[in-house]
Amino acid sequence: MKLKYYLTRIHDFSAAHRLDSPALDAESNREIYDKCNNDNGHGHDYKLEVTISGQPDEKSGLIWPRAEFDRAINAVLQELDYRHLNREIEYFKKHISTGEEIICYLWQRLAQALPEGMLYHLKLWETNNNYFEFGRDL
């Protein structure tokens, strides 16, 4: 019986953001984004589940060495940790910092940081009560 292997590592980062679309007027922004449109922003402890897939190396028994996996994730998340996404991260000056956009950004960055084809799935928790998913499983 052949098996498929997946490994998931969970990291977190804390960041501020504000939801405000340049395509909408101030009133519509307030109406659509409600509390998330607060002028001075607000923040979350984001939690990210990063899943890779592949056959484990025959010798090491690992899909990818843990330390290298952690380094790749940290390199991407450290840029966001303790930042205001809209004001300090170039990507979110052009993209609205919704969970949907953040997870797409993280997918692009992590796919580059990991060996080709290894990244399988992302789950981004914005609060304990909502999460976003993106990847080859959906």
């Binding site: 019986m1 052949k2 098996l3 498929k4 292997y5 997946y6 490994l7 998931t8 590592r9 969970i10 990291h11 899943t51 843990r66």
Partner: peptide, 13 residues
């Protein structure tokens, strides 16, 4: 651990 897990499925799925 709470921040590390593996998942196994059948390859034919």
């Amino acid at each position: 651990k709470h921040d590390l897990y593996a998942e196994i499925r059948r390859a034919e799925d």
